[in-house]
Nucleic acid binder design. Structure first.
Length: 703
DNA sequence: ATAGGGTTAG
C-alpha cells in the first residue's frame, strides 16, 4: 500500500510539472486558450501553474483576465507579484505597474529592475533614473537596463559614463554599448569596445554587422559576416538587408539563396529588393514559396505590384490578403490607395478611406497626401479639398498635392490662391510646389504671372529651376502662342532639354500649326524615346501632308527596326463598383453591347442636328491615317461615355478614364454631348483632366 | 517549471 501511495504521489507530481511546462510553453507562444484548457484540467494546481497562466494572459494582451486570475490566487510569492509588474509593463500600463510595485509585500532586485525597465520603455527616463539610484541593490541586469534607457534617448556620453561606473559588465552590457555607438554613427568607439570584449556571442557579432550596415559600410559588414564563428537567422537577415538597402540586389539575391533558414523578415526584404529592381516575377516567386507570411509580406508584395504598374494584381492580392484574414496594415492601405488613384477607382478608394478611418490611420500627413492625390486622380476635387482642410498641421507635401491637384484640373486661380496662402503662413515652397504653380499658370493662360514667378523662383525662394520647370515654361509660352520664344528658352537652358521639354514644345506646335518646329521637336523625341510611337506617327502625318513620301517610307523603316509599338487605346468607367473597360471598335464584347450601340446612334443624330461633323483632319495629332477613317465613331472614350449616359444617374458627373491622350474629334464630340444631353463629363486622359460642361471644356481646347 | 537586460523590417 505504502509503495503504491508513494508511486502515485510521484506520478501526480510529475503530472503537475509536465502540465506546468505545457502551460508555460503555450503561454510563450501566445496560445492562451490551449494553456487555459491544460490549466483548468489540472487537479492539483501549484503556485507555478497560477503564475504561468497569469503570464500567459499578459502575453496575449489580456491584462484584465490576467488580473482576475491573480486576484483568485490563494497564495502568492514574489514571482507572482513580479509577474504582475512585468505583465503590466508589457502591455504599456505603467501606472498600474507602479501601483503593484508600491503595494507589494516584498520587493527584490527583479521587481525594481522591471519597474525601471517600464519607465525606460515609456520614455520616462527621469523617473527611471530616480528609481534606479534608489535601488537597495543592483546587479548587471539593472545596470544594463538603465544603460539601455540612456542609449535609447541618444544620451550616448552619459551612457558611457554609466558604463564605466559599472562594477561588472557582461556580453549583453557591452553589446548594448556597441549598438548605442552605432546608432549615433560613432563607429570607431563601437569597434573599440567590440575588439576589447573578453567574450562574444552571435548577438554581439550581429550587432556589429547591422551597425556597419546602418552606417552605409556594407563591405565592412560583409567582412565581419564572413569571419563570424556562428550565424543565425538574424545575422543572415541583417546582412541581406544591408544589400537591399543600398540597391545591390544581385548580392542580396545570392545571399538569400545561400541562407540555410529563410526568415520571414529576409523574404520580405528580398521581395522589396526584387521589386525595386523591376524583377516582379522573382518577387512573386519568393512570396509563393514562403511557408509563413506576416502582414508585411503581403504589404511588400502589394507595394511591388503598385510601384511597377500592376494595379490589378495589387488589388487582387489585397483582396486575397483579407480573405486569409490578415488585417490590412498601414503600408498595404497606402499602396492600395495609390492603385485606386491610378485606376481612378473612386468607389474602391472611398472604401479604403473608410478602412483608414476605422484603423485610425487617417490622422497621418502621409496618408492625407495619398488620399488627396487619390481623390484628385479620381476627379473629385471637393473630396480632396475636404481632406486638405480637415488637417491643421499640413506639411509641404499636402500643400503641393492640393496645388498640383487644382493645376491638373485647370483651376489656375484656385492653385495660386493656395500658393499665396501657403507663403503667407511662412511655409517655404520647394521645387515640387513650383511645378504645380507654373503649370497652374500655364493651364489658365496666366503668362505674365507665370513669367514673374519663374523669374523670382531663385531670388525670392532659393529654388533653382530644373528641367521640369523649364518644361512648364515652354508649355506656358507655347500655349500662349509664343512658340518661337519657347524655342529660344530651350536654347538658353543651362541643362540639356529632356523628353518632357520637347513634348511641351510639340504640344504648342500642334496647337498653333507650326509644322517646322514640330518636325524639330518630334525628331528630338524619336531620339530621346525611340520606343514611343506617338512622335513617329506625328512626323509621318507631317510628311504625308506635305507629300514627302520618301521621308514617310524612311520613317516606317526606322520604326520597324526599332520595334516601336503603339499601346492600344482604351477607356474605362466605373459603374456600381465595377470597372468597364472599352477598347476602340465596333465590337465591344460588352454584355450591354446592343444598348450601347443604340445610344451611339441616338447620339450621332443629336450631334449632327447640333452642327457636328466628324473631323479627321488633325494632322498634328498622333493618330494613324486608317484609324482616323474607320473608327472615329467608335473610339474607346465615346463607347465609355455612351455607357455612362446609360448607367450613371442624372445629375452625377460621368467620370471616364483613358490611357492615351484624348483625340481631337472625340474632344469636340464630348463638348457637344455635354450640351445636348445636359450632362457633366469628367475625362482623365494620359496627361490631364477635362471637365466638359454646357458645351465647353476646362482645358480650353488645349491639351 | 513561473519574474528582469542586448540584434533584424517601412
Amino acid at each position: 500500500m505504502r509503495v503504491r501511495f508513494i508511486l502515485s504521489r510521484k506520478y501526480c507530481t510529475s503530472i503537475a510539472i509536465s502540465s506546468n511546462s505545457q502551460i508555460a510553453r503555450y503561454a510563450r507562444l501566445g496560445q492562451i486558450e490551449k494553456a487555459r484548457r491544460v490549466f483548468d484540467q489540472m487537479p492539483d494546481k501549484t503556485i507555478v501553474s497560477w503564475n504561468s497562466i497569469v503570464a500567459g494572459y499578459f502575453q496575449s494582451n489580456q491584462p484584465g483576465e490576467a488580473r482576475k486570475l491573480f486576484d483568485r490566487m490563494l497564495e502568492r510569492n514574489t514571482v507572482s507579484w513580479n509577474g504582475l509588474i512585468s505583465g503590466y509593463v508589457k502591455n504599456g500600463m505603467i501606472i498600474e505597474a507602479r501601483k503593484v510595485f508600491d503595494s507589494m509585500p516584498e520587493r527584490n532586485v527583479v521587481s525594481w529592475t522591471s519597474m525601471v525597465r517600464g519607465y525606460v520603455q515609456e520614455g520616462i527616463i527621469s523617473e527611471a533614473e530616480s528609481l534606479f539610484w534608489q535601488m537597495p541593490e543592483r546587479n548587471v541586469v539593472s545596470w544594463t537596463v538603465m544603460l539601455g534607457g540612456l542609449i535609447q534617448e541618444g544620451r550616448i556620453d552619459e551612457a558611457r559614463r554609466l558604463y564605466d561606473m559599472m562594477p561588472e559588465k557582461d556580453v549583453v552590457t557591452r553589446t548594448n554599448m556597441i549598438g548605442g555607438y552605432f546608432q549615433v554613427g560613432r563607429l570607431a568607439e563601437a569597434r573599440e569596445i567590440f575588439d576589447e570584449m573578453p567574450r562574444r556571442n552571435v548577438v554581439s557579432w550581429t550587432t556589429m554587422v547591422s551597425g556597419y550596415v546602418h552606417n552605409n559600410q556594407v563591405d565592412v559588414a560583409r567582412k565581419l559576416f564572413e569571419v563570424m564563428p556562428e550565424k543565425n537567422e538574424v545575422s543572415w537577415t541583417a546582412m541581406l538587408i544591408g544589400y537591399t538597402q543600398c540597391g545591390r540586389i544581385e548580392e542580396a539575391s545570392e545571399l538569400f539563396h545561400a541562407m540555410p533558414d529563410k526568415s520571414v523578415v529576409a523574404c520580405n526584404a528580398i521581395i522589396l529588393g526584387y521589386g525595386q529592381n523591376g524583377e516582379v516575377a522573382k518577387a512573386r516567386e519568393v512570396f509563393d514559396n514562403m511557408r509563413e507570411r506576416d502582414d508585411r509580406t503581403w504589404s511588400a508584395m502589394i507595394k511591388v505590384y503598385e510601384r511597377k504598374g500592376f494595379e490589378l494584381e495589387a488589388l487582387d492580392l489585397f483582396t486575397l490578403m483579407q480573405r486569409e484574414s490578415v488585417r490590412p496594415n498601414f503600408p498595404s492601405l497606402i499602396s492600395v490607395l495609390s492603385v485606386c488613384g491610378s485606376l481612378a477607382s473612386l468607389d474602391y478608394g472611398r472604401q479604403i478611406h473608410a478602412q483608414l478611418v476605422r484603423n485610425q490611420f487617417d490622422h497621418d500627413v502621409y496618408v492625407a497626401s495619398v488620399l488627396m492625390t487619390m481623390y484628385v486622380k479620381c476627379g473629385n476635387l471637393v473630396k480632396a479639398n475636404q481632406v486638405f482642410n480637415r488637417f491643421a498641421a499640413k506639411d509641404i507635401v499636402m500643400w503641393n498635392s492640393m496645388i498640383t491637384g487644382y493645376a491638373q484640373h485647370g483651376l489656375g486661380e484656385k492653385a495660386l490662391q493656395i500658393f499665396q496662402e501657403m507663403c503667407s503662413l511662412g511655409i517655404s515652397p520647394d521645387e515640387i510646389t513650383f511645378i504645380g504653380v507654373l503649370s497652374a499658370c500655364s493651364y489658365s493662360g496666366k503668362v505674365e504671372k507665370g513669367l514673374e514667378i519663374f523669374e523670382t523662383m531663385k531670388s525670392k525662394y532659393q529654388v533653382e529651376p530644373r528641367t521640369e520647370h523649364y518644361a512648364c515654361m515652354v508649355d506656358l509660352l507655347g500655349r500662349a502662342g509664343k512658340v518661337k520664344e519657347a524655342m529660344d528658352l530651350i536654347k538658353k537652358m543651362p541643362v540639356e532639354a529632356d523628353a518632357i521639354v520637347w513634348g511641351a514644345l510639340l504640344g504648342a506646335c500642334r496647337q498653333h500649326m507650326k509644322l517646322d518646329l514640330a518636325e524639330v521637336a518630334a525628331k528630338k523625341l524619336t531620339e530621346l524615346e525611340p520606343n514611343k510611337a506617338g512622335p513617329y506617327v506625328l512626323l509621318s502625318n507631317i510628311y504625308a501632308s506635305q507629300g514627302r513620301w520618301h521621308d514617310v517610307a524612311e520613317l516606317r523603316k526606322n520604326m520597324r527596326t526599332r520595334s516601336v509599338s503603339k499601346s492600344p487605346g482604351c477607356s474605362w468607367i466605373e459603374v456600381e463598383k465595377n470597372v468597364h473597360m472599352f477598347t476602340g471598335g465596333e465590337s465591344t464584347g460588352h454584355p450591354d453591347h446592343a444598348m450601347i450601340m443604340r445610344m451611339l446612334e441616338k447620339l450621332g443624330v443629336l450631334l449632327r442636328e447640333a452642327g457636328y461633323c466628324p473631323d479627321a483632319s488633325f494632322v498634328l495629332h498622333d493618330v494613324e491615317e486608317e484609324e482616323k477613317a474607320h473608327s472615329l465613331g467608335y473610339h474607346s472614350e465615346k463607347l465609355a461615355i455612351a455607357y455612362g449616359l446609360l448607367k450613371v444617374p442624372q445629375g452625377m458627373p460621368i467620370r471616364v478614364m483613358k490611357n492615351l491622350r484624348v483625340c481631337g474629334d472625340c474632344h469636340s464630340a464630348i463638348k457637344l454631348i455635354s450640351k445636348v444631353m445636359g450632362r457633366e463629363v469628367i475625362l482623365r486622359d494620359a496627361n490631364r483632366f477635362h471637365h466638359f460642361k454646357d458645351g465647353l471644356c476646362s482645358c480650353r481646347d488645349y491639351w
